[in-house]
Design a protein around this nucleic acid. Structure first.
Lengths: 356, 356
DNA sequence: ACTTTTTCCGTGTTCGTACACGACAAAAAG
DNA sequence: CTTTTTGTCGTGTACGAACACGGAAAAAGT
């Protein structure tokens, strides 16, 4: 018997001795590697339980040649500044932290305008047979097909940005759009004088995950329905199909002209900068504006004071957490939260700098 | 020569071959372990640079018996619910993540009312000769002494909560109190009608790091000085020495009675719950209240709608980041930010749940 | 020139775990 | 009863780096 190697295995050896088996048997049980009779397995498991044996993660990954590959399926960012770049930043940060544990990440992008690209990329992911998947279930029918395939292969998947209920997901990482709408309502309610009206503006062209917009609007109305003291305020809803079209822009300015008591505007998605541009050009003043998402165009108008509040849902953190969740589940074998709502941040000119 | 071991060292062997030296020499250079002539050291360093050799952190910590001990010097929490418990939560989380790298954390607490306890604990820390220190420089003279001792021993230190300029600190993790005051001002400015007055309330008894309070007030006034459109609002400042004293409470109610146009109150520290209690008891309504810190007492009043906004600076994250910063500097040998301001969060009843 | 000291370098063992290989016995097939 | 298959188990080596030990070469001392 080699004395030296036995020293290295002291911990396992302890267990082996107590169970009256060999070291090899013990680590077969520990790593679930079969080739052990049920009786000895049970005996060993009980002893391990008593000792509270904690395997050393570093030695483990060092010795193991196992690698994990995670696949991402996300919408393609429309421009270098647009929303979907943000989660990617978080993904990269997570990757930096965990790549040493033998983790690879493959990013697959689909076009938000074309469900076929979603299917194509989903197919590629299935083919590559990853250990875990992160996806934004943008197209719900296609997503259902994809996850049923994943379920068949016992590949865990994490939803990001949008959720699908009752889907055996490992986790959902994202926002609570309804609450974010309620919050926007409160802020506007506080920021405009009594008896003024509020305009709810949908820029709906680029159907950037419509469900969120609907939820935000619902939350917004919910606030004014339940807070009776604010009941005097009138709400007006306006849908703008193409914010670049002059006719559409006129729609807005007309609305404002015919309703001079409108003192607050709520834009349900990240495209508040279209409105801000219009306000800047037409020199309208005295209107509080609230929108979503910390993207560069919006930041500029926030600094200028044309947009008063931005509500933001930490997209970088969503990307980061999605990856880390898979990691914790697969590598660390920790319990993970089935639902993980990111915080709903209120950003103004004053605290902007601290959300980099 | 043992063939097998040579295989294990392939990467370093590559370098050794190119530099025409032995494997041992290379790892001496890599780990700065001396016993290498300057000429060969330089040659090897150049080659390492070209190869972009990245040491494997896991193998490294596994083989190394080196352990790091970090010492913390923080104010003792006054109650189980009070502010200074929060950073501790973050510290524990950080510890969970990095303890496997051989890191110990020793927590030293001092009494906020007694600078001597600060000195005693600081002495103990010096004696224990840790690899890194996190401290809240609550007492500035005593802190200066302490850090000069640390500097002598080349022990890096991270400030948390408060900063000391020009102190050769490794990093500062904390809030920007001035900006947080500005932000509070904006929110109140938006939330009260024009021509109303605003009351700034200091609960100054427990001198919980006075400097922050001063900075917040400065920021608050700064906002109203620069935003001329809001110039019509009158600001009143009131200092309350003992919020439990009835005379002091009357001071507040008197102030509100004699100035019925006060429609907003800003409490500069976490003790807004004293005011909220008073408001609740006396059934005053129609006043917007803004305070600091997400502690349980405040949360209750936020939910009840008596406090409208809480401004919060993520104390858990401050604790977490302080530890991680030391870790990154000492173990990962990464560059760390010299100043790290945590985000200034606005919390209302509506988004409270997402800041757990 | 010879000994002693210093400087430099090569190699083997080690950290805690994973896994391949092969030994051996029992069961199944011939 | 022999041969093959299956089911268990023990041990040795590897993962990538850290570090001790001791030997060779160079420098210093006599």
């Amino acid at each position: 018997m080699n004395i030296i190697k036995a020293i290295n295995r002291t911990r396992i050896k302890d267990i082996a001795q107590k169970a009256n088996v060999s070291i090899g048997t013990v680590d077969r049980v520990i790593h679930n590697r079969g080739e052990v009779s049920n009786a000895t397995r049970d005996r060993i498991l009980r002893i391990i339980d008593e000792m509270e044996y904690q395997p050393n993660l570093m030695a483990s990954t060092l010795a193991s040649k196992k690698t994990f590959s995670f696949a991402l399926l996300l919408p393609e960012p429309i421009s270098p500044e647009s929303y979907w770049n943000k989660p990617m930043v978080g993904v990269r940060r997570a990757f930096q932290e965990i790549q040493q544990y033998g983790i690879n990440i493959n990013i697959h992008l689909f076009k938000q305008s074309d469900a076929n690209t979603f299917n194509t990329e989903a197919g590629k992911i299935i083919e590559s047979n990853p250990e875990g998947v992160v996806l934004a279930p943008f197209f719900s029918r296609e997503s259902m097909e994809f996850i049923s395939e994943l379920k068949k292969r016992a590949i865990p998947y994490v939803f990001i940005d949008s959720n699908i209920k009752d889907s055996d997901k490992l986790s959902y990482i994202g926002q609570n759009s309804f609450q974010s709408g309620t919050l926007a309502a409160k802020l506007l309610d506080f920021s405009v004088p009594e008896n003024s009206s509020i305009l709810v503006l949908h820029f709906a062209k680029e159907r950037d995950n419509m469900n969120h917009l609907v939820q935000r609007e619902k939350g917004f109305y919910e606030y004014f329905n339940t807070n009776l003291t604010s009941g005097k305020k009138k709400l007006i809803t306006l849908e703008i199909s193409d914010p670049n079209d002059i006719a559409c822009q006129n729609q807005i300015t007309d609305q404002l002209k015919s309703n001079p008591e409108v003192k607050g505007i709520f834009v349900t998605n990240s495209q508040v900068y279209y409105l801000a541009r219009l306000i800047e050009e037409t020199n309208i003043s005295g209107i509080r504006v609230i929108g979503h998402d910390l993207i560069n165009e919006n930041i500029n108008f926030l600094k200028k004071g044309i947009v008063d509040f931005l509500i933001c849902q930490r997209p970088e953190e969503q990307g980061y957490k999605a990856i880390i969740t898979l990691f914790e589940h697969l590598v660390l074998k920790k319990e993970v939260n089935n639902e993980n709502y990111t915080s709903i941040d209120i950003i103004t000119k004053e605290n902007l700098d601290y959300y980099k």
